[in-house]
Every structure is written in C-alpha cells, then in structure tokens.
Write a protein that binds this DNA or RNA. Structure first.
Length: 110
DNA sequence: GTAATGACCTTGG
DNA sequence: ACCAAGGCCATTA
C-alpha cells in the first residue's frame, strides 16, 4: 500500500499553520503529484483513523469550498473548527481564502 | 482481472 | 463568462 503518500499528505496538513488553509492540489503539487489531487482527498478520507488526528478542516478545494465537510463527524464541526482558527466561513466557503491560503510549495519552498 | 467511485483540477465548447 | 467533459491515482466492489 502506498501509505507513504498518505503519511506525507498527513504530514503536510499537520504543518499547516493555525488560521491558515490549503488545497488538495497544493498538497499534491508539493508532493510532486499535482495530478493526484483526488488521491490527496482520498487520503483525507483515512485521516479520520490516523493518529494523531489530521486537521482536515484546514484542507479545502481550489474554490475554498468545504467540500469534505460532510465527511466529518458533523458538517458543522468543520466550520466550527475553522471558526476557532479565526477563519470566517460563509455558505460553506472560506472568506478571504486567497489570503488564508497556505501553499506548502511556497511556504515550505522545498 | 475489470469496472466504478471519489473530500479534485484543468481544459474545451 | 458559463457549462460540460476528461484525466489522474488509489481504493473498493
């Protein structure tokens, strides 16, 4: 199993600063698999059972839309967590997502 | 082994 | 500008 890819995704998500968000494509691109953005999302699917728990609520799609909120314990849970991060979410979309966007490929600058 | 699905992104009309 | 289709990788049926 390519759990390594999953672990890498989890690692990057965990490195996301508080009050910041990133996208699947950004993580995938950072891992060198920008084409595998879907796999990143799938990895998040297993983040629920991974320890320590991964802040998947900080990971959204390219539109800044909380597409995976439904995969959380409760759809509100994700927004609540984001609200705790001082991130405003409206209509399942992150406000100022462009500013809150945290790109590992740029911040970490591998 | 093949077929279908998915927390996506890019490109074409 | 908006709507539709394709592609890519991994997992599950």
């Amino acid at each position: 199993m390519e759990k390594d890819f999953f672990q890498m995704v989890y690692q990057v998500v965990r490195l996301v600063p508080k009050g910041r968000v990133t996208s699947y494509g950004a993580i995938a691109a950072y891992l060198g698999a920008k084409s595998s953005s879907r796999v990143v999302g799938y990895a998040m699917n297993g983040a629920h059972q991974v320890k320590p728990k991964v802040p998947a609520h900080r990971v959204v799609n390219r539109n800044g839309l909380l597409t995976g909120k439904h995969h959380f314990e409760t759809p509100y849970h994700m927004q609540e967590l984001l609200a705790k991060e001082k991130i405003i979410v409206e209509n399942d979309s992150i406000v100022d997502f462009k500013k809150l966007f945290w790109d590992p490929s740029i911040e970490l600058k591998l």
